[in-house]
Simulated scan of single mutants.
Amino acid sequence: MNEMTSVATTAKDWASDQEVRWCPGCGDYAVLKAVQRTMPDLGLAREKTVFVSGIGCSSRFPYYMETYGFHTIHGRAPAVATGVKLANPELDVWIITGDGDALSIGGNHTMHVLRRNLDCQILLFNNEIYGLTKGQYSPTSRIGTRSPSTPFGSVDRPARPCAFALGSGARFVARGIDVHKNLPDVLKAAHAHKGAAFVEIFQNCVVYNDDVFAPFTAKEFAADRQLWLKHGEKMVFAGGTKGIALDTELLTLKVVAGDDPAVLTHNAQNRAIAHMLVEMPGEGFPVALGVIYDDPAPTFESAVVEQNAAAAAGKTPDLQKLVSKGQTWQVEKEPRAE
């Protein structure tokens, strides 16, 4: 995307006149406010911004943003967003999706928008449940999750959104929490990345999966279970008393004392460590948050634009010549029998 002139706006300018309709206490409210607060800091123009969503609770998002938007069909938001970006590469495109929308029926489309590296921001709201269809288990639901579709507990191994993104070739992967103060910083980093920026947001569903993330989001556990990553800084948590190091024998990560010389310095361009960070086991380990991986590469739409320009160089547009090219014939009107 080409650089745009910065536009002065306020958070209120980004809020539409539509009544926000989510369940009281839903984490979606916090994400919406974080996005609306972040947009003025990015200096974006509302008429140059597009929000595209699929189906699900999170996919009502475009109604509440005073921008252009598409509320599309289940799992196909990446396909529509790709069309938008190719039609007008100057637009700033945001994809809003959920764990069920993006990783179940939309898994194929999510994979391809990531590997193609379309310049867009993908915000995946992960509440580990299907909320809109009344609480069935989703691709990210944990083993043992009881729901209307798994009354005896889910036996599926859950998908890990960030691991899926990295495996699909994503060049930017990050995590945030719906109500955390750092979420706007994560959104800004995603927007600064040129290419497909994938952000998993842990979002609490108060009705069907309340407090599923409490073991690392609740105030009493946050310090000991949250590892906020910053490029060039040590991977420490629990007030600096603990850190993450590499077990060189097993080639896995391990928890060590915060002052241990072996504590890793976060390098957002290290793809191998990024894979380890998103797969860290739960017991005794924190949850990696912030920008986990950021290593830009040429974008899909820039390659398409360049290819089209090269193909058209030195040629004069002639639609009639194009449609007449190759084998043609003319249907003659037969004379009417008298």
Rank of each mutant, 00 (worst) to 15 (best):
V256D: 05
V236A: 12
F221T: 10
N204K: 01
I201E: 03
F172H: 15
A189N: 13
V199E: 04
S168T: 01
A257N: 14
A165E: 12
V179E: 13
R171D: 07
Q226E: 10
D247C: 00
L183P: 00
D224W: 04
N182A: 11
T248W: 12
V256A: 04
V179A: 15
F164H: 06
G258D: 11
F172C: 04
G167K: 00
L253Y: 02
I201G: 02
H193Q: 00
F221Q: 13
A174G: 15
L253G: 02
V206A: 14
K234S: 14
G239S: 05
L253C: 14
A163V: 03
K242T: 08
A245V: 12
E220H: 13
F213A: 12
K188A: 02
G239V: 06
N182Q: 09
A196R: 00
W228E: 02
K254E: 13
A223L: 06
D224G: 14
V173W: 00
K254H: 04
K219W: 05
A196I: 00
E220L: 12
K254P: 09
D247H: 05
G243E: 10
L264Y: 02
N209H: 15
H266Y: 07
K234H: 11
E220N: 11
R175L: 01
A222V: 05
H193W: 04
K194H: 10
G239E: 04
Q203R: 13
F237A: 05
N204H: 08
R225G: 07
D178G: 03
V263A: 10
A174T: 12
I244A: 09
V207E: 06
R175Q: 05
